[in-house]
């Protein structure tokens, strides 16, 4: 937009700062919670500035640093593979769908859309993947089920292409003798950088945060688990230890900070996403801004 009104600009400025604050404060609460002693949390609840600082949650986690690093690595492998594959699948599906002249376009849209509404449920999906494709306890089990292509993002991308890339450009390219693949690579992709960045980011988040695939499809080879599954395991064991009802014969469980640890684990899980985000930012979103200024 081209802004000349100072008042509007200031309003937007203040508004954005306000948004940052409402998102940061709870996160700050989380970080504060992760360094507050367990007793303090239980008795006085959460405070923006902890009265009694304790790093016991992080100390407890430090013992598992090797496992955490390994799981990070796994998560990166899973996410990067998944995002790359997903970008290819999504783009290849979205571009033809954006072509209003494609015969059978409505049927294909419906074919895509139905997958968003109806699903067979966990057990049948599990049947298909484990009995037909035998992906149990393989890396594919972490990557393929349910995450590889998101109909929602395909539709978003299709809509973006329809509304942002004028037919005339493609028509002109075709007149110049460019094939469909060439149109896609030379024209559509460069002009679709913002939505590609968004799709990549959303898919990355989905992969990064996913833990259900790890639970359902990885049973024995837990070394294939990514960070979410690993952190979940730590959390489950700490909680179980502390809350064990049946048998009293156990280690001293009072020393395990379960609530503080939950906070610490959340912090650990989120940090890499924050680190990765600016990368997507730079290569896609800013790319288009600069590109369009030039053009």
């Amino acid at each position: 937009m081209i802004i000349k009104s100072k008042a509007f600009y200031t309003t937007a400025y203040v508004f954005v700062i306000f948004l940052i604050l409402i998102c940061v404060i709870p996160f700050w609460l989380l970080i504060a919670g992760s360094v507050t002693s367990e007793a303090e949390l239980l008795v006085h609840g959460y405070a923006l500035i902890p009265k009694e600082v304790s790093f016991s949650a992080f100390e407890f986690l430090w013992q598992m640093k090797d496992g955490i690093l390994q799981a990070y690595l796994m998560s990166i492998v899973i996410s990067v593979t998944g995002v790359s594959a997903s970008l290819v699948l999504t783009t290849l599906f979205a571009y033809p769908l954006s072509r209003k002249d494609l015969p059978g376009r409505n049927a294909i849209s419906l074919f895509l859309f139905i997958t968003m509404l109806f699903n067979g449920g966990l057990v049948p999906t599990y049947f298909v993947y484990t009995r037909l494709f035998h992906i149990k306890d393989t890396l594919a089990g972490m990557i393929v089920p349910s995450l590889l292509m998101n109909a929602f993002l395909v539709i978003m991308m299709r809509t973006y292409i329809t509304s942002s890339i004028p037919d005339e450009i493609l028509e002109a390219a075709r007149v110049d003798g460019a094939g469909e693949f060439r149109c896609l690579l030379a024209i559509v992709l460069p002009l679709s950088k913002p939505i590609l960045g968004t799709v990549a980011l959303m898919t990355f988040i989905a992969y990064w945060n996913n833990w259900t695939n790890g639970i359902y499809y990885i049973q024995q080879k837990t070394e294939l688990h990514g960070i979410q599954n690993y952190l979940k395991r730590i959390m489950d064991s700490a909680t179980m230890l502390q809350q064990q009802l049946a048998s009293s014969i156990n280690m001293d469980t009072r020393s395990i900070p379960t609530i503080g640890m939950r906070m610490a684990l959340a912090v650990i899980a989120v940090i890499p996403v924050l680190a990765v985000y600016p990368f997507f930012q730079k290569s896609f979103v800013q790319g288009i801004t600069i590109g369009s200024v030039k053009g």
């Binding site: 966990l122 057990v123 599990y126 049947f127 484990t130 009995r131 149990k136 639970i215 359902y216 049973q219 024995q220 837990t222 979940k232 395991r233 489950d236 179980m240």
Partner: peptide, 21 residues
């Protein structure tokens, strides 16, 4: 076959559906 306590219901459901696993 390790079954995760917190996800026990789901995992057991899947392990008792008749597949090779």
């Amino acid at each position: 076959v390790y079954v995760n306590f917190a996800e026990m219901q789901q995992q057991m459901n899947l392990l008792l559906t008749g597949g090779s696993d």
